[in-house]
Design a protein around this nucleic acid. Structure first.
Lengths: 154, 154
DNA sequence: TATAACATGTAACTAGTTACATGATTGG
DNA sequence: CCAATCATGTAACTAGTTACATGTTATA
């Protein structure tokens, strides 16, 4: 999955692994996370695969930047991935449900504590989604009007 | 997580890896999956850890069964895991949202196809939850009344 | 003066998946 | 007669995490 996410972002414009990580953190990161190290190794794998090419931009007083760009082969890979619908629900792992499943012996207090804790966490998440995330998307769309269609989906 | 699930089931009664897999498939499998091979290797690791012990039951005309049993150390590990609440939402990976995020260029038809497909899949899931799963739990509880408290959580 | 931001990477590890191997019995 | 069930396991792999290493500049 990660390769397609990176392909998807690079398809908007060529970028470095560092920038891709930042993009992910405030957008797809809400439903697909990746560590910096995994992004770097995945980009190398994608380059070996021929989906992207890199060029190095030398900088004074800053580490060099490795800028990746989608190739024609990468574009077609992205295209066929997007147009090929998912036909089954991916098995979601849910640690809370696992814990609750085995919590009969924990006692009512412990159970309620756990549930209230999670309720709070989710309420925070909702607030985050309603404020910050919506703003990020609105701004992106405002910055480049040709992305209005895309922003709808974001 | 898997070790605690296995511990949780073994805590009801000693069992083989094969039986644990079947139990998982119709209960915790709905929110935490594991392949047979992973269960076997995890059980071995747990035995090395001292959480469980095994004894072999020889059978004629059937492969031998390896029956695992929770040790006192395993019980205490399970106990402290259960009573230690989860304090953050685990990042759920959601392939559908990823695909939709990058589907602006796919066209309205493709998008609607994907969404309808998923709607159907979820409706099937709901039906499954309401019928089969509820029955499995009701039966388990009926078979051993001392598990009524547990069945409530299942 | 410390820390965040910039920028890249490797090594060692854990978790999880796929594929392979074996072999008898029971039910349709 | 074929497939499913019972029952265990190993090997090779992919995905993902954690820890380490390096070094400058702007900002608080």
């Amino acid at each position: 999955m990660l390769p397609y996410i990176l392909l998807g972002f690079l398809n908007y414009k060529p970028q470095t692994g560092y920038e891709l990580k930042q993009l992910m953190d405030k957008s797809t990161g809400h439903f697909w996370t990746a560590k910096q190290s995994q992004i770097y190794t995945t980009l190398k794998k994608m380059e070996r695969e021929g989906w992207i090419t890199s060029r190095v931009e030398t900088q004074k007083a800053r580490p060099d930047r490795v800028i990746y760009k989608v190739t024609r082969s990468g574009q077609s890979a992205l295209g066929s991935w997007v147009s090929n619908p998912i036909r089954e629900i991916d098995p979601h792992k849910n640690a809370l449900l696992v814990k609750l499943f085995f919590s009969a012996r924990a006692g009512r207090e412990a159970l309620l504590t756990q549930l209230r804790l999670f309720q709070n966490l989710h309420q925070q998440k909702i607030r985050l989604y309603k404020s910050q995330v919506q703003n990020v998307i609105r701004e992106s769309a405002a910055r480049s009007p040709r992305l209005k269609e895309d922003a709808l989906l974001w």
